Amino acid sequence: MKQCSAEFLGTFWLVLGGCGSAVLAAAFPNVGIGLHGVSLAFGLTVLTMAYAIGRISGCHLNPAVSIGLWAGGRFPANKLVPYIIAQVLGAIAAGAVLYFIASGAAGFDVTKGFASNGFDAHSPGGYSMGAALVTEIVMTMFFLLVILGSTDKRAPAGFAPIAIGLALTLIHLISIPVTNTSVNPARSTGVAVFVGDWAIEQLWLFWVAPIIGAVLGAVAYRFIASETA
């Protein structure tokens, strides 16, 4: 229960901090933080929570990460469902808080996206479904490589949160124009449920692609790590 509570709170922070920066601050008049600021915000949420709750739950904050860690032999299968439920609930709770805050401004229109992930007409850069699928798979694959490598017992101790946070920042810098960056099914779900319509219709890709990518990352890391064991 404590581990799942930590995952709920951590995922809440990720969605509120990352999506909140996109909804509330990205294009704020004169001092908008833009793509770079949103990318950094997502990285900072993971970095700060990794130090805060890493010792409690491992700080997954992401169903794809939990599945990838399981595939990498780092996480027991019997904890997968409770972790994923906690993560999705935390994301939706953060989406609700963000919706309440954002709707306090005149002219707020949730149909404009609300930091949802999408492809084709709903991709920030108009990228196709195929491009979105490949982007999410590859980005999540390398995210898992960084997570597994930086948390390996042979890696320098205490630096994993920094590497993981910077990796997520880099991922956003690359892929925000393509999909608005998911690599996290819970993050995608947490805002999509408030947009409805197209965001729900396209949500499948932001579950399937990150999970495939996470498993590929785990398989790749197990292969290269075994060569140097």
Rank of each mutant, 00 (worst) to 15 (best):
V15T: 04
G20Q: 02
G20F: 00
G20M: 00
A26R: 12
N30M: 10
I33C: 04
L35Y: 10
H36L: 08
L40M: 15
L44N: 08
T45Y: 14
M49T: 08
R55F: 06
G58E: 14
H60I: 03
A71L: 14
A77W: 14
P82M: 03
A94D: 07
A94I: 04
A96V: 05
V97R: 03
Y99A: 08
S103K: 13
F108Q: 13
A115H: 05
G118Q: 01
G118A: 04
A121G: 12
S123L: 10
L133D: 02
V134R: 07
V138L: 10
T140V: 01
F142A: 12
L145G: 12
V146T: 13
V146D: 08
I147R: 13
G149F: 04
S150P: 06
P161N: 03
I164G: 03
L166A: 13
L173N: 04
T181D: 06
N184W: 01
P185H: 02
R187L: 15
S188C: 13
A192S: 14
G196Y: 04
D197N: 07
W198N: 03
L203N: 03
F206R: 01
V208M: 04
A209N: 02
A209T: 08
G213S: 08
A218E: 05
V219E: 01
R222F: 09
S226Y: 05
S226M: 07
T228S: 06
